[in-house]
Simulated assay, not measured.
Amino acid sequence: MARDRRPSKQMLALLATMSDRPGHWRHGYELMKETGVSSGTLYPLLLRMTEQGLLAAEWREPVQAGRPPRHAYRLTVAGISLARSVAESHSGCSAGMVRI
Rank of each mutant, 00 (worst) to 15 (best):
33 K>S: 11
60 R>P: 01
13 A>T: 06
55 L>V: 06
81 S>R: 15
28 G>M: 03
94 S>Q: 15
39 S>A: 13
85 S>K: 15
35 T>S: 01
86 V>N: 02
68 P>H: 15
56 A>I: 06
58 E>L: 09
47 L>N: 08
74 R>I: 04
1 M>Q: 11
57 A>N: 03
92 G>K: 14
64 Q>W: 13
90 H>N: 14
64 Q>G: 05
18 M>W: 01
58 E>M: 11
82 L>H: 04
67 R>T: 09
77 V>D: 05
24 H>Y: 11
57 A>G: 05
78 A>I: 05
41 T>V: 09
79 G>W: 01
72 A>V: 12
55 L>K: 05
58 E>V: 13
11 M>C: 03
95 A>D: 06
3 R>W: 07
84 R>K: 12
59 W>V: 14
94 S>H: 15
14 L>S: 03
64 Q>V: 13
59 W>N: 10
93 C>H: 14
5 R>S: 05
71 H>A: 07
6 R>W: 09
48 R>A: 02
16 A>N: 05
2 A>M: 12
3 R>L: 09
9 K>A: 05
4 D>F: 14
14 L>C: 03
58 E>P: 01
12 L>Y: 02
50 T>R: 08
73 Y>K: 09
47 L>D: 02
22 P>M: 06
67 R>H: 08
48 R>E: 00
66 G>P: 01
53 G>P: 00
25 W>C: 05
72 A>Y: 01
18 M>C: 04
84 R>Q: 04
49 M>G: 02
18 M>L: 07
32 M>I: 12
6 R>A: 11
67 R>L: 06
52 Q>T: 05
22 P>H: 06
44 P>R: 10
50 T>Y: 03
59 W>A: 13
74 R>H: 02
70 R>V: 11
85 S>P: 00
81 S>I: 12
49 M>P: 00
86 V>G: 00
43 Y>M: 11
11 M>E: 03
94 S>E: 13
58 E>F: 07
26 R>C: 02
72 A>K: 10
77 V>F: 07
76 T>M: 02
1 M>D: 08
77 V>K: 14
16 A>W: 01
40 G>L: 09
28 G>A: 10
25 W>H: 08
64 Q>N: 11
77 V>N: 09
24 H>G: 07
96 G>M: 08
21 R>C: 04
80 I>N: 06
49 M>W: 04
75 L>T: 09
23 G>C: 10
27 H>V: 13
5 R>I: 08
37 V>R: 13
57 A>C: 04
35 T>F: 01
30 E>M: 08
60 R>T: 10
96 G>F: 07
13 A>H: 03
87 A>N: 07
26 R>N: 02
84 R>C: 01
94 S>D: 11
17 T>N: 05
5 R>V: 08
84 R>E: 00
26 R>G: 00
38 S>W: 15
31 L>Y: 02
48 R>V: 04
41 T>A: 10
96 G>S: 09
68 P>M: 14
90 H>D: 10
69 P>K: 14
70 R>D: 00
1 M>T: 10
82 L>N: 02
70 R>F: 01
5 R>L: 07
71 H>G: 04
35 T>C: 03
25 W>T: 07
74 R>K: 13
50 T>M: 00
52 Q>E: 04
91 S>L: 12
63 V>K: 10
6 R>M: 07
49 M>R: 06
91 S>N: 13
71 H>T: 10
63 V>D: 09
1 M>H: 07
94 S>C: 13
30 E>Q: 12
14 L>K: 11
